[in-house]
Design a protein around this nucleic acid. Structure first.
Lengths: 133, 133
DNA sequence: GTAAGTGTACTATTATTACTAGTACACCTA
DNA sequence: TAGGTGTACTAGTAATAATAGTACACTTAC
């Protein structure tokens, strides 16, 4: 069960985005296993003191992004494997990657540092599908 | 002079953010040289059909981030070199990097692809400072 | 000195969105 | 049947992006 949802109300990033990022991270790193049950909307709303509607919005987004699946009346569960990956999302991520790396490099971050972080992150993730471009 | 400011009004990202990202990109890649003059607030507002206040906000942010400097009565210019780099910004960028790489890997992007893009981006940027962590 | 172009600082208004609040209903399981 | 689950809906509030318009100080060119 999740207990590591950290929400910073002072963060300008919307709460539902923070929840999405948190859960995505847990799934990507494998902290949440496939088919594992997520906290219910109401439960997570209580433990975080966030309105249930906000939690629901995060869950809805996560489902449409393929990270979780929903069974009405039972709950939300971690999706076993990313399928039907949206190519637009991949392009978005590559764009984000380029922008972050470019600015880091421009600001003086060492290439070796950047590469190391990238490799560590990859090795810690839970790759599943084939080799998309 | 800039003529490559692409603004997508259907993009949910705020217009001033799009302008910031555009100009950052031009500076990072070296398309805009140090001390080169940027279009005036009013000029860019005309060519893009965006309200001058929105342009001004983008310029103000870029200046406080150290990408450009302003001379009252003369205009805005590309900052020669990033100094006094905000360590919080570096941490932000590393976090963004980790999140993007993690999700890419999870979605099935090949490690070789990711690394290649990172290296290409670094080699195309305009590094200046020392080696910040 | 004057005029034109520059950044900057205001106030006011509108539109959008995140968030909260509350309710209702259908579904599943013990 | 009872309790927990997801879902849908309406309504209202708060924050922010964006527009609109004005004003002023500064710099440069004439």
């Amino acid at each position: 069960m999740i207990s590591i949802i950290a929400i910073d109300l002072r963060n300008p990033k919307p709460i539902y985005e923070q929840i999405k990022d948190n859960i995505k991270q847990l799934i990507i790193t494998g902290a949440l296993k496939p088919d594992e049950k997520l906290p219910s909307v109401r439960e997570l709303a209580q433990t975080t003191s966030i309105n249930p509607n906000t939690i629901q919005k995060a869950y809805r987004d996560l489902e449409s992004d393929g990270f979780i699946y929903t069974v009405s009346g039972r709950g939300n569960f971690v999706a076993p494997s990313p399928k039907n990956v949206d190519s637009k999302r991949l392009e978005e991520l590559y764009d984000i990657l380029r922008a972050a790396v470019g600015e880091l490099s421009y600001l003086g971050a060492a290439q070796s540092n950047i590469i190391e972080i990238v490799q560590n992150t990859i090795s810690r993730s839970r790759p599943q599908g084939g080799n998309k471009t």
